[in-house]
Amino acid sequence: MQKAPATAQASPKKKRKGVSYDHYGYLFVAPFFIVFLVFQLYPIFFTFRTAFTDAIGWEKILDNNLIGWDNFKLFFDPSSNLFVSYWRAFGNTIVIWLFNFVPQISMALILASWFTSGQMRLRGQGAFKMLIFMPNIITATTIAILFFSLFSYPIAPVNTLLQQFGLLNLPFEFFRSTAASRGIISFIQWWMWYGNTMIIMIAGIMGINPALFEAGLVDGCSSRQIFWKITLPLIKPILLYNLVTSLVGGLTMFDIPQLMTQGNPNNTTDTVARFIYSQGFTGSHNFNYASAASIILFGIIVVCSFLLSQAMKDRDKGAKKK
């Protein structure tokens, strides 16, 4: 390597002969980095900065003053309206997420263990997997509008059907009932995502050494014992991955509540992402509060993910020590 400059000086013509294509690589990756810098990294820093300013309204989005932690304090001051709406939205988000996540992971586990079971040998697996995964491909907008028209009041398919089967005498106003509205949102989230979770679970179970299952069978394990004692402990990392991604997705839930219920009835389906949107893009355009709210949400997600992975790590260590 040291010699290279010397030869170049000695015979400059020689250098021209050897064409280096190395720098073209940078050109090929450049589009990604430019897009990433402009549309992802810069907005993140911009959000962090905006959270510490008095940027209310479009006029002040670029021309504003730094005001320190004042915006954040409002979110932890029980007498402020922002505190009430933000943490109410947070509570709603958690409830809706839990009622979606628990059934989702259970259903995905059951289906995954059936599809991978050597004893069951289900027929038409491909078709079933595709059908179960299908809702994930449809856009959330379409689904929100579909369910809104299905459950409308007083004339809509679900009400008509329930009345015809004699289950209801009068039409029921689903979107004025907290339980029904949250239930429908949770159901949609579950229905859209259990197929996706199932595919990941199947991949996880297929990754387990088949010798372990065989050994279990030879030792006379029931299929229930195989599931609880072999499958479940070995796919824990996959479960953790699912838990974390679902938590992040759940806490940032926006499209279905926004399009279907707009937070109704009485703000019981208002989610954190909806709160952030309404602060930043409706009313006075409180960009500063919207940014502060996003950063608080970001902080909560980071802490939750860290705690979950930490909990998992400790257990692994404990297991190894045994």
Partner: peptide, 14 residues
């Protein structure tokens, strides 16, 4: 009261 609170939350300058 709820209506007023909601307006205040959305329109910080009112």
């Amino acid at each position: 009261a709820d209506f007023k609170a909601a307006v205040k939350t959305q329109f910080s300058d009112l």
